[in-house]
Design a protein around this nucleic acid. Sequence first.
RNA 1: GGCCCGUUAGCUCAACAGGUAGAGCAGCGGACUCUUAAUCCGCGGGUUGUAGGUUCGAGUCCUACACGGGUCACCA
Length: 491
Amino acid sequence: MKLSDQEMARKSKLERLAQENIDLFPRKVESTHSVYEIVAAFSSLSSEELEKKKEKIIVPGRIISVRKMGRATFFHIMDSRAKLQVYLREDKVSKRNYELFSLIDIGDIISVEGMLFKTQTGELTVLAESFTFLAKCLHPLPEKWHGLQDVEIRYRQRFLDLIMNPEQREVFRLRSAMISHVRKFFDGKGYIEVETPMMQPIPGGALARPFKTFHNALGMDLYLRIAPELYLKRLIVGGFEKVYEINRSFRNEGISSEHNPEFTMLEFYEAYADYNDMMDMTEELIQEMSLALLGKEEIAYGANKISLKRPWKRLKFKEALTTYSGLAPSRFDDRAGVIEFASTLTPEKQAPSYGKALDVIFDKCVKESLVQPTFVLNPPKEVSPLAKAARDDPDEAERFELVMGGMEIANAFSELSDPEEQRIRFEEQEQARKGGDEDAHWIDRDYIHALEYGLPPTGGEGIGIDRLVMLFADRKSIREVILFPLLRQKE
RNA sequence: GGCCCGUUAGCUCAACAGGUAGAGCAGCGGACUCUUAAUCCGCGGGUUGUAGGUUCGAGUCCUACACGGGUCACCA
């Protein structure tokens, strides 16, 4: 790897530091505060108050800017949440140490010991008495004014993105807070958090293509899970009334601004509940989350404002089709015509049936129109092999999809609990699979066996956490809310 | 996978119609003890994504490839 002139300069400074007998990789640094803690605790104090306090602090951080003026230097250090100015004077730190400081570059990590004061412009600043070298940054940092813009570098070298772009750090801080909120919410309702297999002999719980792997010792094919659903329902059979899991699922499909091959899903199941209860709980969870983390019930998403005020719109799947698809309601009576129409939307794959065709039309023509949170109720049963049939129509499923900002955020149903019907539905899926539908559900006999021990009436739901973060953080690409999104290998 | 767009110094970007690749920041040297996009003086830094082609001459035109973005398809 060829070094640039700037990298050579940094490397030679590192060597000179080594010659000065400075520990280049110290094991531990004592500190009294983080940068953020200092800013939070002392910013509001006046010069006089700081003077009186004589607070001596030791604070570590990364140098992000330097302004040298002869025998004095101002620079800023930062931590993940704040930055702090340091004032370094030759007469305070000794001539030798002041010269040593010239071996330190923007990007290096140091700790500074000194007293706090305020400059003439009122900025909280550390008057340094000494500094300790903690780590060398061997590459120049991106430009201070524009930061790092190149999306490819931002994703491939996320650490650089995080160093340079504070708003990006905030996205991931928000993501973390959202996940904490989810846990608090369910723990508070008496749910227990569980972990179910990510490697499964039969990938179930959703209609999607899996990643395949192999266990050497057992000589056994395994699949990365496409959903935790069937295992969570086994736990309901086992007697846990309320379970949730928040973790990764994997789908071997296209990558887009709404799809990453591995993504984080919240799934929760509650015995003696149905999909109506799930709707109430979803509204409550997301609305409270917004109030708690964003301080409001309305979120800005691109040019749109999304109101999370309850209750949210509830719309029958068929109504959604007739209202938003642009097709006259009467056209939906012509089953062959609907299949024909759906096929024009997906020329590479003919919709094999009426239910599938309706689903295609919903995806292509309806979803993007639903910006405000909308529960789309009762989609075709045939695309919902794990849901109970609707109470008033045997062709519909007792299921909803929550659509928001044009994206599907959640999917829930009153769980199918009749083992015999489940077996028939699996067999129908098997037929579709044989007919070339690679996404059709596999037959999971062990799951049917579990159902035979009795699954109580159960409501269950999955929420796409990444997409929810996109909405809360106002990001248009799922890669912006996943720390390390999958990219093609370079070279 | 199809189509469109992009790839120039460490970073952010210029370079008209094909005619010696530039700027700001960053870096290096110098001046400067309240600066904060510090300021002032000087200097270095490029296989223009890769490989070919057209041309007297290619960052610029053509072809292929790589990577990224967008979009459609596939898919939640």
